[in-house]
Design a protein around this nucleic acid. Sequence first.
DNA 1: ACTCTAATTAGAAAAATATCTAATTAGAGA
DNA 2: TCTCTAATTAGATATTTTTCTAATTAGAGT
Lengths: 104, 104
Amino acid sequence: MKINQVLKALSHPIRREIITRLRDGPQSAGELASNFGVSKPTMSTHFAALKDADLITAERDGVTINYHLNTTVAEEAMSAVMGILGAGEEKAPAIKNKRKKAAI
Amino acid sequence: MKINQVLKALSHPIRREIITRLRDGPQSAGELASNFGVSKPTMSTHFAALKDADLITAERDGVTINYHLNTTVAEEAMSAVMGILGAGEEKAPAIKNKRKKAAI
DNA sequence: ACTCTAATTAGAAAAATATCTAATTAGAGA
DNA sequence: TCTCTAATTAGATATTTTTCTAATTAGAGT
């Protein structure tokens, strides 16, 4: 899984909403685009970023292109984020002799 | 929780590793910096991004500054990411009459 | 073959990000 | 107070990202 591309993809609110919408099933580029106040070419670059991260796949049906969420990669991404942020893990036992002082 | 700042913070590999390291307990700016091949000022900007996202807190002890992981925000961030990517959720029942075609 | 629609690619501009060196701040200790 | 150390802020530059309009591609239908 391309953790770098995946987390870059997740760093933009429009791309996050695209993912959320695709959880309910595939949608065309045009349908997706209609929800956001940006141009279609801008949406295309967001789709490209999500494809680059393998978070979505594209499938052409005649003249329209339908995007699908790649649930496998979505789940891998969740695991990876838990691995980074620490899935309910415990701090190592404290080592003494470190004076604590005021916050900044 | 500042989802935008949090996910921006997670989008850089150095910042991700800072978080991972702080899971084992607080560390000073200098200790953290020694693990990466970038300058100290660059590390300061990464610390600032993490502080802005409330993922870490700073505490001064004399001349050194110790950074702590904010586990509360880290856990909120995990929940948020699961909410976006879909924590084991199911697709809505399929609607028919959508022809499927070749991938692109 | 023409034309219409859906979407992308091309090219450009503005904004944000990442990085560096130099300068500054802040505390500790002689 | 001077000086040393740890770290940040200032200022500059290069790169990347986001966004736009205009042009192109691709398929469907007439």
